[in-house]
Simulated assay, not measured.
Amino acid sequence: MSRLATRFAQLKSQQRKALVSYVMAGDPQPQVTVPLLHNMVEAGVDVIELGLPFSDPMADGPVIALAAERALAGGTNTLDALNMVKEFRQKDTETPVVLMGYLNPVEVLGYEKFVSYANECGVDGVLLVDLPPEEAHDLNVVLKKFDMDQIFLLAPTSTEQRIKHVVKQASGFIYYVSLKGVTGAATLDVPEVTARIQKIKTETNIPVGVGFGISDAASAKAIGGVADAVIVGSAFVKQFANLTPEQAAIETVNKVKELRAALDELV
C-alpha cells in the first residue's frame, strides 16, 4: 500500500480531511525548504506537494510564478528538489510527497532517470500540469514500474467523457481545479464545486482533492465538507514574497494551524 493510499485510508477511518500543502522547492533559498516541510507537517499537513521550479509555469498565477523565479535565482533545479525529498525522508518516512511541476524538466532528464531517482529519494507521486492523460502513457509505464502514483487534474470545464478518461488512469488522488483560471485566483463557487465533486465521485473511489482559491479557514472548511482533501498553495507561498525567510516560515506554519483547525471542526 502506497504512502498516499495509507494516509488517505487513515484519515478516512478518523473521518478527517487531508490538508495538502504546496511548497516551491528552493524558495527563497535552498536551505529553507526541508525545515519548513517538517514544521508544516508538525503543524498539521497530511500530504506535501513539492513544486519543481520552472521558468514558464503557465498554470500558475503571479504568486507561485514569482516563487519559481526566486527558486531558480537561488540555484535550485529539478535534481536539487529531489534531493530535498531525500533529506526530508531522513526524519520523516510516513508523510506522502507528490512532485508538482511541468513536463519539460522531466523530459530533459528522461523518464527513467527522473522516476528512478525520485523513487530512490522517497517521492510518492507525480503531477505534471501540462501532461494530459492522452500523452502520459510512456511516463505512466515508468511510474508503475516503481509503484509511484500519477495524479491528474480535472476542472470545471471537464466533460463527462473527460472525467471517465482521467479517473481510469489516475492514482493516488484526483486534483480538482475549482476555478477557471490560474493558481491564486480569488472566488470560490462552493455549490458548483460540490456538484462537480459529487459527479467525479460517482466515477471513482480515488480520493478527490480540491485546489485553487482556498486561502483561509472559511474556504477550507467549506471545501472540506465535500472533498477528501483541501489543497493550498498560494496562501503559503505568498509569505515568502515580502517577509524574511524566518518570518515567512512562522507565518506559513500559523496558516497551516488555522486551516487544520478549520478542517478538524468537520469531524
Rank of each mutant, 00 (worst) to 15 (best):
S2Y: 00
L4N: 03
A5I: 02
T6G: 00
T6S: 03
F8Y: 08
Q10R: 12
Q10Y: 07
Q10D: 05
S13H: 14
R16H: 12
A18P: 14
A18V: 07
A18L: 10
V20M: 15
M24F: 04
A25E: 06
G26K: 04
Q31D: 14
V32F: 05
H38Q: 13
G44V: 00
D46Q: 02
D46A: 06
I48R: 06
I48E: 02
G51P: 10
L52K: 01
L52Q: 08
S55T: 14
P57T: 08
A59T: 14
G61Q: 11
G61F: 02
G61I: 00
V63H: 08
I64L: 08
A65L: 01
L66I: 09
A67L: 05
A67E: 00
E69G: 05
R70W: 03
R70V: 02
A73N: 13
G75S: 11
L79C: 10
L79F: 14
L82I: 09
N83H: 14
V85S: 06
V85R: 03
E87L: 13
E87D: 13
F88R: 10
D92T: 13
E94T: 11
P96V: 04
V97R: 09
V97C: 12
Y102R: 07
Y102G: 03
Y102N: 05
V106A: 03
V108G: 04
L109G: 01
Y111K: 03
E112A: 15
F114M: 10
S116A: 15
Y117K: 05
N119Y: 15
N119I: 12
C121L: 13
G122T: 09
D124F: 09
V126T: 11
L128G: 01
L128Q: 07
V129P: 00
L131G: 01
P132M: 04
P133Q: 09
P133L: 01
E134C: 07
A136S: 15
L139W: 04
L143G: 02
F146T: 00
F146G: 01
D147A: 01
I151N: 02
I151C: 01
L154M: 12
L154W: 03
T157E: 13
S158R: 02
R162E: 14
I163M: 12
K164D: 05
K164Q: 14
V167E: 00
Q169V: 01
Q169S: 11
S171A: 15
G172Q: 00
G172E: 03
F173C: 03
Y176I: 08
V177M: 11
L179R: 05
A185E: 14
D189N: 15
P191A: 08
P191W: 13
P191G: 06
E192G: 09
A195G: 14
R196W: 01
I200Y: 01
I200A: 11
P207C: 05
V210Q: 00
G211F: 01
I214T: 14
S215D: 05
A217Q: 15
I223E: 03
I223D: 13
V226L: 10
D228T: 06
S234W: 04
K238E: 11
K238S: 09
F240G: 01
A241W: 02
T244Y: 06
T244R: 04
Q247I: 15
Q247D: 11
A248F: 09
I250N: 11
V253I: 14
N254K: 15
K257M: 13
E258V: 13
E258F: 07
E258Y: 11
A261N: 14
A261C: 13
L263G: 06
D264R: 07
E265V: 02
L266S: 12
